[in-house]
Design a protein around this nucleic acid. Structure first.
Length: 419
RNA sequence: GGAGAGGUGGCAGAGUGGUCGAAUGCGUCAGUCUUGAAAACUGAAGUCCUUGAAAGGGGACCGUGGGUUCGAAUCCCACCCUCUCCGCCA
């Protein structure tokens, strides 16, 4: 959510930002509604003020005088209730519009409508040249007994899977590697709930826009598609001290996504599944654009370091305006090379939000001068499995169908090749 | 799942219809005292909306949302959360 004062004073910037994101929102309508809201609020406040004055007098009066004042107050009350009703209606529309206003993308975000317009900013690693025709991760893993998709679908439904044998081992190895990677960093590891109530989804911007991609329980909570939701909700409605910032979390949770808009995409294998696991980096920082940029680069670097340690060829793209979420100011995707698709596929997504999320969540802090500010928030994937298995398996495959274990994982796998 | 108790400022905790944005204690900040500190004493201090150049003015906020009333922290309803006991359970 943006600050209404900012929207009022810089409606041209807000409009341009929405246009860049290819999001339609009626800013002029919002401004008109805001005028209405303020004048009604004033009216209601004035009436209340009058009524408060009368209310103060009533207990001091006796008999007839008292009755007269009470009657007067009753009349006032009727008018007040009328205005309050109007105000409530206006506020409802106002809020509905407010949550649709997107955050303003950074100047450095390229123009564009969809992910194909994203701009590559760097590549790392050599795309491997195979002396044979590489096989897909599905074929390789099935042959090696690392995954069971048929039984996965039988038990779990569409996109269901069992990781088993060395598939499960490889996943555990990655998790241990991830944990150790963060051991000496200034991040607090945290295992977050996946079963989360609506407020945190509103706060992070997943609701109301993306409700169809969330699993909802019969108790009206939702299953989170990323631990960002719970990690951000953790400090909702808190007043932090500037000395506590930045708060850096290394959050882990199971993640659930309905993939409602992705029917027919990636229907085979482990790229797109309904249920997966993710280590996420989440940062609450001081309200400064420079700090946000600094942490954004840091979070991106952490993920890249991990990819480099695994020796997976990847590139980094800066997402275009149309590929940014409602609250995102800027986003980098890291995409790993997947040989059988002859393409880079997204494994990480690093974004910063300025105070878009924290304003909704009420995450504030008192700075050195005692001023109250909304913190800034950022997040980036560190490692999502089983998706990350896909580039590992495919890039490390050998002609005989065996998989070389990435060097950094050998200690956790206890072997250097999967056969 | 059943029975009960409760949610008040940074914390503890009073307040059961009007003079309560809210006693008191602790903590915080400033000052006095002190070589410095502690103690003691004096004083200050909530958040949000709105209006105003500012000083200031007005309004809201006692878990959340409704309701009763001229008037609600206080009464009623729903929901959320916490605690205790019983049952079930990894």
């Amino acid at each position: 959510m943006l600050d209404i004062h900012f929207i009022r004073e810089h409606s041209d910037i807000v409009k341009a930002g929405a246009a860049k994101k290819h999001i339609e929102v009626d800013i002029d309508g919002l401004l008109k509604l805001d005028d209405e809201r303020r004048s009604l609020q004033q009216k209601v406040d004035d009436r209340r003020s009058e009524q408060n004055k009368i209310s103060d007098q009533i207990p001091k009066l006796e008999g007839g005088e008292r009755e007269v004042k009470i009657a007067e107050s009753k009349l006032l009350k009727d008018k007040l209730q009328e205005d309050e009703k109007k105000l409530k209606e206006v506020l409802k529309q106002w809020r509905a519009l407010m949550v649709q206003v997107p955050n303003i993308p950074d100047m450095s975000v390229p123009e564009g409508k969809e992910d194909s317009d994203n701009k590559e900013i760097r590549t790392w690693g050599e795309k491997k040249e195979f002396s044979f025709t590489p096989k897909s991760h599905v074929e390789l893993m099935q042959k090696l007994g690392m995954v069971d998709l048929e039984r996965g679908a039988k038990v779990s439904g569409f996109r269901g899977y069992f990781l088993k044998g060395d598939g499960a081992r490889l996943n555990f190895a990655l998790w241990q590697f991830a944990m150790n990677f963060f051991n000496e960093k200034d991040f607090t590891p945290v295992i977050t709930p996946s079963l989360v109530r609506g407020e945190s989804f509103f706060g992070t911007g997943y609701l109301p826009q993306s409700e169809e991609d969330l699993y909802k329980t019969q108790d009206d909570s939702y299953l989170a598609g990323t631990s960002e939701v719970a990690a951000m909700g953790m400090h909702a409605n808190e007043m932090l001290d500037v000395k506590e910032l930045p708060k850096k979390y290394f959050a882990f949770s199971p993640c659930f996504r309905r993939e409602a808009g992705s029917h027919g995409k990636d229907t085979k294998g482990l790229v797109r599944v309904h249920e997966f696991f993710k280590f996420e980096q989440v940062v609450l920082s001081e309200a400064s654009h420079e700090k946000s940029v600094e942490y954004h680069e840091e979070l991106t670097k952490n993920a890249e370091d991990m990819m480099r340690a695994l020796k997976l060829p990847y590139h980094v793209v800066v997402n275009c305006g149309g590929d940014l979420g409602l609250g995102q100011v800027k986003k980098y995707d890291i995409e790993a090379w997947v040989p059988t698709e002859d393409a880079y596929r997204e494994t990480h997504s690093a974004s910063y939000f300025h105070d878009f999320q924290t304003r909704r969540l009420g995450i504030r802090y008192r700075d050195e001068n005692g001023d109250i500010k909304f913190a800034h928030s950022l997040n980036n994937t560190f490692m999502a499995t089983p998706r990350l298995l896909v580039p590992i398996i495919e890039n490390y495959q050998n002609e005989d169908g065996s998989i070389t274990v990435p060097e950094v994982l050998i200690p956790y796998m206890g072997k250097d090749v999967i056969t």
